[in-house]
Design a protein around this nucleic acid. Sequence first.
DNA 1: GCCAACGTTGGC
DNA 2: GCCAACGTTGGC
Length: 159
Amino acid sequence: MMKTRPKYWLMKSEPDVYSLDDLIRDCITCWEGVRNYQARNFMRDEMQVGDLMLFYHSRTKPAGVAGIGKICKKAYPDYTAWDLQSPYYDPKSSPDNARWVMVDVKFVNKFPRFVSREEMKMQAGLEDIWVLRRGMRLSIQPVEERHFRLIKRLGRWSP
DNA sequence: GCCAACGTTGGC
DNA sequence: GCCAACGTTGGC
């Protein structure tokens, strides 16, 4: 049986840098600054317009899922990589040969209940979600549909 | 702020 | 191409 493409994602952001509330303000944002090959490959090769993502707040207390966004533009070159002023500048990337990509994400929903990492760890059915794996620090992760459904239920999202 | 677990770099 | 050293991530 052929493995199906993931349609759900978890994307990490440090709220001090960019939070879900920032996305509410902006409505749409470009997800710049991903500088990890595995994460890039997920965006470049697998993400499609219409996919839903869990907006995960990392490096904060508490960490966890704040809400939902939707991929609204497929992968295109991350131009911050060739912007000398950008913290994401990478001399190995250029307009002729873009090494990094980004997607655009549109705001969908802020959970009525923040779903903390602690709660996720307690939750039966989430034992094998990537984000809870030991040592897992990938900033873009595929999420199984059953995990996505469970988390949006915990967040009391009823579209 | 500590530090374990990763990912990347570069000497050999 | 190995692997030690270094830099980063991110929970705690």
